[in-house]
């Protein structure tokens, strides 16, 4: 379980997260949504332990989130660049050497599904293939938490579809929880169980998608249009 208590994150020039308290239950797919600069990526980094709150606390399975709790969370950053000097195969081997929960067979399977050439140098990969690589390297880890920062952003519909299908195929919700940030809300509507909506760094709403459909008859995008002005 991930728990945030009165979390605030300040940077030199701005406050990225303002006093957020929430609990993310396990075994679900959760989307973090909100406009540009609303704090989506920062929230995910706080959970990954790659950023520390200025005040408040973030715990992952009861432990304070820091660099080392990363062993419970497979994190994929938005910048999406892996060591460009590696080939796809070398990147897999490196990842496998670093993370004991990395499943090589699974990586191979995803690599084939994503049609990645293992001998290609990463710096020579197209943007779409980098997105695929990133997803493959992250989903091959059998970590309790999978954290994806904008996994669909800037990719063409075919790649996005392959990535979404990859998530459904290779995340086991009986043992894993997937948290992703996205501004492609329509794309993830049927994929996510619940969403965390941020507005200017504050928690705007956290709810089940089906609750939104059932009670308000709205899609996330419609709801956001209605409440974000």
């Amino acid at each position: 379980m991930i728990q945030m208590t009165n979390v605030t994150k300040e940077y030199a020039k701005n406050t990225a997260i303002k006093d957020i308290s929430l609990t993310v239950p396990t075994g679900r797919i959760i989307g973090i949504v909100g406009g540009n600069g609303s704090g989506k990526s920062t929230l995910l980094k706080l959970i990954a332990g790659l950023a520390q709150p200025t005040s408040g606390s973030v715990t992952v399975n009861g432990e304070k989130a820091n660099r080392r709790t990363g062993q419970f969370a497979a994190y994929s950053s938005e910048s999406g660049i892996y060591y460009p000097i590696f080939t796809v195969r070398e990147a897999i081997r490196f990842q496998a050497s670093q993370f004991p929960d990395f499943n090589l067979a699974k990586a191979d399977e995803i690599m084939k599904l994503m049609q990645l050439d293992p001998h290609m140098k990463i710096k020579a990969l197209s943007k779409g293939n980098r997105g695929r690589l990133q997803i493959m390297l992250t989903l091959a880890r059998e970590a309790p938490y999978i954290l994806l920062d904008e996994p669909l952003s800037g990719l063409d519909p075919m790649v996005r579809d392959a990535i979404v299908k990859g998530m459904i195929s290779y995340v086991d919700l009986s043992t894993q929880t997937l948290i992703m940030t996205s501004h492609e809300v329509t794309e993830i509507e049927t994929l996510i169980d619940g969403f965390i909506a941020l507005k200017d760094g504050s928690l705007h709403r956290m709810a089940d998608v089906e609750e939104l459909h059932e009670v308000e008859g709205l899609r996330i995008a419609d709801w956001m249009k209605k409440t974000y002005d």
Partner: peptide, 14 residues
């Protein structure tokens, strides 16, 4: 459940 999820790009819980 998983194959159905893949078919419709839908959350397995759903």
């Amino acid at each position: 459940i998983r194959d159905m999820g893949i078919k419709y790009s839908m959350n397995p819980n759903t």
